[in-house]
Design a protein around this nucleic acid. Structure first.
Lengths: 296, 296
DNA sequence: TTCAATATTTCATTATATGAAATAAAAATA
DNA sequence: TATTTTTATTTCATATAATGAAATATTGAA
């Protein structure tokens, strides 16, 4: 039996209080979890978990073993990180979570270039607009737009983006062009459902200060790219970041409106868990991303 | 690959600077040592040992990994000890080294009784009058008679023994009975070669104080039992501990002489390596031995 | 009582570990 | 220099263990 693996399995079970959950996060089958725990208990001569098919309760011995186990696993990880640091061809697997649109626009070329540079670092990208839990999902770096959540994580700024209100020329000629933000109330506004307040668009103006306009319309989605395509089709008005609308503006398929009003400014951050020594692959990609996105 | 095993193998190789030596102390084949080191180096992406078929030199990475490894292995051992402590049926393998004669006379019945009490504790006894290196040989408890060596080990007193000068009635009637220690010079003295000074026997006397008598004879051996048997056969005079000669004295096959002079007094000690938490099997046997030998 | 969720056992398959024997390489010795 | 000795490595056949799919058992909830 691989003691190290058994230790890892037990610690996950301890944290989740569930074999199923542990099996999923570790990517092994449920029977394997059962076996690892059994073998461990047999080897130690002590029951670690009091369990039936539905509940798990941790014994005193289990708590004790967890305390030791977590410390040992951390020490081992640190040792391996330090050793990998000395390697001139860093190895490892890296799990990254990036927002869909940002990822497609900015990150794909960066990943491509990075992999050419470090062929032994495998990258597993999760294109996902949800805010995944770093510890639970095992994600090493997550890119997040807008406000940041809890502060047990480190966040490093990547790049800013500005929101633009746009519509297709056809839409504007049919329904008229709004001249002030308040005019949006009478338009079909395509809203991004994952925004902090999807039904309210904010602007800044030298004269009026901050303006919050309630908007409504026939369509709402959790994907900015889709909204942008809808706008190109002439369905309605969008308020989306530059990196999504720029190409359509340039080709004339979309027209920016309300350009006298400052749109929202957001910032993308790279988020990762604080540790004494970050694994080299993580550190490398992080610096690479920051460097590449500085120029954008 | 079992990472912990690989770590253990590497640490032994590091300490011995030899694959062969490591393979022997760990009880695995030489090819396995090679493979563990190779797999480890591959996994870490770093060379740990610069080596050819004859020499080994440790790289910077190797030293670093050893530092981490030793700490991790110790933490692991401590965790397992603590857990085994909680077990009501302690398990484990125990390596014990005892002097040949003492072991046969005193320890065999103790081992027997101990095993009935703790059937899950396997005992591997090395009957051996050499002073084995605890760390190198992996011995948990060593019983040693006479003077103690280095003090990085803990020694606990077990039982005393007294030396008796004896010969067979036949020998005495043929060659005469020595009346003072100095008379031994003219006799065939059978000497224990592992004694600190085999060719000099010491006595204490109220009048004369300590007396060191040079002795010589036709026979010398590293086994007291054998010397005793020789004496029973009438070959010569021995100066051996009570636990060896008692039964022959009682049966009349040996006669104690020079009984007015105090013979040497020795003490057996149980020696073990100092640790924060001794493994439960070790602790149990230790206390059991001490308890049982107190009565002797 | 039935259903749903979860742990466990069974079983066949695959992967890994293992050491004996052969091989290679380098120092010691003749 | 040639030979021997010592030690690490590779090869190879075999035994052992790891693995997950599927079936089974168990328990709380509906």
């Amino acid at each position: 039996m691989d003691k190290f693996q058994a230790m890892k399995v037990f610690c996950r079970v301890y944290e989740a209080e569930s074999f199923k959950s542990a099996s999923e996060t570790l990517g092994i089958s449920r029977p394997m979890v059962t076996r690892y725990i059994n073998t461990l208990e047999e080897a130690l001569g002590v029951k670690l978990l009091q369990r039936n098919t539905r509940n798990i309760s941790i014994t005193h011995a289990g708590t004790l073993y967890y305390k030791h186990g977590i410390a040992i696993l951390e020490a081992l990880e640190e040792a391996e990180n330090e050793l990998n640091d000395l390697s001139n061809s860093p190895k490892g697997r890296l799990k990254v979570s990036v927002p869909m649109d940002f990822g497609l626009s900015y990150m794909v070329p960066i990943f491509n270039e990075f992999q050419k540079l470090y062929p032994d670092i495998k990258i597993d990208v999760d294109f996902n607009d949800r805010r995944v839990d770093l510890t639970e999902s095992g994600v090493d770096i997550a890119v997040r737009g807008g406000a940041l959540g809890g502060d047990q994580f480190v966040a490093r700024p990547l790049t800013e983006f500005k929101g633009y209100v746009c519509a297709s020329p056809e839409y504007l000629s049919t329904f008229g062009e709004p001249k002030t933000p308040h005019d949006l109330i009478d338009h079909n506004c395509l809203r991004y459902s994952l925004a902090p307040s999807p039904n309210q668009w904010s602007f800044m103006d030298g004269k009026h200060g901050e303006m919050n306009v309630p908007v409504s319309g026939s369509f709402e989605a959790n994907n900015g790219g889709a909204l942008t395509r809808m706008a190109v089709e002439g369905v309605g008005i969008i308020y989306q970041p530059g990196f999504l609308v720029d190409r359509y503006v340039q080709s004339g398929q979309l027209v920016p409106i309300l350009t006298n009003f400052c749109g929202y400014v957001g910032k993308f951050h790279a988020v990762y868990t604080q540790r004494r020594l970050l694994p080299k692959p993580t550190r490398l990609l992080l610096e690479f991303m920051i460097e590449k996105l500085r120029a954008v």
